[in-house]
Structure formats: C-alpha cells, structure tokens
Simulated assay, not measured.
Amino acid sequence: MHWFGFGFNGFGQIEPQSKDAIRLLSPVKLDSLCVCAETFSRSDLSPEQKTESRKVVAGWSRVAVLHNTGERRCVCVHGAEGGVLVSESEGCEDAVLTERCLTLSFAHTVQCWKLHTNTRELVWSSEITRTGNTGNAPPLPLVPGGYIASKLPFFQPLSPHLQAMSLALGTEHAVLSTASGTVYTWGHGGHGQLGHGTLVSGDEPRAIEALWGVPMKSVAAGGWHSACISAGGDLYVWGWNESGQLGLPSKGLREARQREKQRIEKDKLEGSKMDESNSDVFISIQAFPALVDVSEASEINKVSCGSRHTAAITGIGDLYTWGWGHYGQLGHGSRCSSDEPQMVTFFSSGRMRVEDVVCGLWNTFVSAVPRDHVPS
C-alpha cells in the first residue's frame, strides 16, 4: 500500500523537498514522509517487518503519519518544522491532528500534546476504562464516555444511550453515527451543515429526521458541510455549496466558468451569457440531506470532506473529487473547481485501486494498491 498527496503544500507537508511548490496539482507519492521513521526501526527487523504507513491524519500546516515497524508503532509529524518523530507516540493505537494539538490514544490513556516548533507540551491526559467485550475501540476522536474536542475543555461527554460508532468534527460542528445507523449532529448550523432544514445552531446531539429509516455506515464533516454513506452505498450531503463541495450545481462556479468563456470567446458574448431564468436550480445552501450520484457503476465505500472540497471512493476502488480546487486538492492536474464529481484518473490509469482517502483543509491524501493486489 502506498500513500499519495496533492493540493496545498505551503509547509512541505506533502513533499518536503518541494516547499516552493505551494500547489501540487497531481498526486505525489509520500515516500519522503517515511524517512524520519527509519530512526524508529531496529536493525534486527526482517524485510517483512519494514516500516509501513498505515494511516494519515491531516491538519492545515501539518500532517501526521502513523507508522508500523514490526510490532512497534509511532507517529511522525511533517510541516513547517520538517519531519519530526514523536517519541511520546510509541505504542499508540490512533491519532488525530489539529492545528495546535496532536491527540494520541493508547490502550489505557488518551494524551493531547500541544505542538510547538520541534517541541511538544503535554496539555491534557486521561486514563480510559473499557468495559465489557466491545471489540475494537472506536476511532478517535471518540473515547469511552465521550470524545476529544479540538480545544479546551478537550474531553466532551456523550450519552451512552447514543451508542456512538464514529464521529467527524468539522470546523464548527460535529456529525455522529450510532450502532443503529442513526446520524446525529450538533454545533454551528449557519450554513445548513446540521441537516435539520434550518440554519439554527444546536448544543446537543439531535437526530437528522430526514435520514430516519435509512441506516448509515459512516459520516464525514468538512468546513461547513457534511456527508454520510448509507448501508447500501448511497451518498448523502448537506450544508454549504459555495464551491460546489456538495456535488450540486453552484452558481458561483457556473458564473466563473461563464466569465472565463466570455474572456476567451469575446466575439460570442451574447451566446455565452448565463441564462438567468435557470438561476433557481443553483444551490448555495442545502439544509436537508441530498442524494448525490457519484458513479453509476458502483456504490460509495468511503467519503471525506475538506474545508470546501469532498472526495469519495467507490466499491471498485475509483476516487472521485469535487468542490474547491484552487490548490490542486481535487487531483485533476489543474486548479479548477468543480460542482460535479469527477474521477481522479491518475489512479485508474495507473491500474491502482484506492483504499482510503483523507481530506485536509486544502489538500487530499490517498492510499492505493495495485489493481491485482489481493488483500491479506
């Protein structure tokens, strides 16, 4: 499995050797992000125990990579300070990254480390107790009894009656899925990102009534938009669509496209003017969940949301992206934005199957394997 990145690289968080390349318009293999993990390796490791990057979590100016080296685990953080091996992370099970903090979960503790240039400060730690036979621990930011927020107070309680399975934190809101497949949201709702049909905010988790009766298997949250995938592989989106991040018609993008067409075809101005009579089809805010057709050939297995872009993986391993593309975060080799899901042909033409996708605010990270690879 190989990880790739594209989009904003202003701090060298994708390609450290290309800090002058603020925009990476096409996927770049993240081999250079594994270099600092070599210091974590032992000389007695066999080739089968070589360092493997098993997860990437992205902030704005940094990216954290979780490594396996044999039976050992560690985290490396890359960004303005270069590549830093977080020695305090040895043995961690999971990690999440914000602009200020790196949160690490271990078998019995959760720790929040404040990130400074080449230094770290432990700002919060708590023992955790897992009761009963719950199987694998839920992924961060969920922890037993609640979740870890991006700012103080870090621990936020959740009612055990919710039976939380996964949680996604947007810029100012949260989206949670339960064991029954119900989706709850809370936080700021001024862009419709809570999915209740209004622009009202809410402090307490509230079920999205429009999705009742349709079990959901995963959720995602971006800057001011949200998404979830049903058990049957359908993708639902809601919230702000200013940059086409919902995959629904965006007036701003269409107008920009028309202006560019007018600039190129000055002699055909009348024929290229926008038809204002159709302006009512454009969507700036979608306050209820809307079904988006990404691919007619396959269901959706995974979705991730950036600040103003979205990425999804189909059941056959194709990657589609849409929304704001100014920094190349859509991976189509250009800075163009799009309000229609488009396949990232870099992977399909390279006979690669995409297995995971993680959107940073202005960039995207993808893991892929050869199409003929048989998972172990």
Rank of each mutant, 00 (worst) to 15 (best):
W3R: 02
G12Y: 03
I14A: 01
Q17E: 12
S18N: 08
K19V: 14
A21G: 00
D31W: 04
V35M: 09
E38Y: 07
L45V: 04
E48P: 00
Q49D: 10
T51Q: 03
R54P: 01
K55T: 03
R62L: 14
V63A: 13
V65K: 09
V77I: 15
V77A: 09
A80M: 12
C92P: 02
D94G: 02
D94Q: 02
A95T: 03
V96R: 02
T98G: 07
T98C: 05
E99Y: 04
E99S: 10
R100T: 10
L102I: 07
L104E: 07
A107M: 12
H108E: 15
T109G: 04
T109Y: 08
N118Y: 05
R120N: 02
L122Y: 03
V123Q: 07
W124T: 06
T129S: 11
R130M: 07
T131P: 01
N133S: 10
F155I: 06
H161A: 14
L162S: 11
L162M: 10
S166T: 11
G170A: 06
A174Q: 12
V175I: 13
L176D: 09
A179Y: 09
S180C: 08
W186E: 11
H188S: 11
H188I: 08
H191C: 15
Q193L: 00
G197K: 04
L199Q: 03
D203G: 15
A210R: 14
L211E: 10
W212N: 11
G213Q: 07
P215Q: 08
M216D: 07
H225C: 03
A231H: 13
G232V: 09
D234F: 13
V237E: 14
E242D: 11
L248P: 02
L248D: 01
K251L: 09
K251Y: 08
E255Q: 10
R257Q: 13
E265D: 07
K268D: 10
E276V: 12
N278T: 13
F282S: 06
A287S: 15
V294K: 11
S298G: 06
T314D: 07
G315H: 06
G315T: 06
D318K: 15
G328V: 00
Q329K: 00
H332E: 05
H332K: 06
S337C: 06
S337W: 04
V344C: 13
G360S: 01
L361P: 00
W362H: 05
F365H: 05
F365K: 01
S367W: 01
V369G: 04
H373Y: 15
H373D: 11
S376C: 11
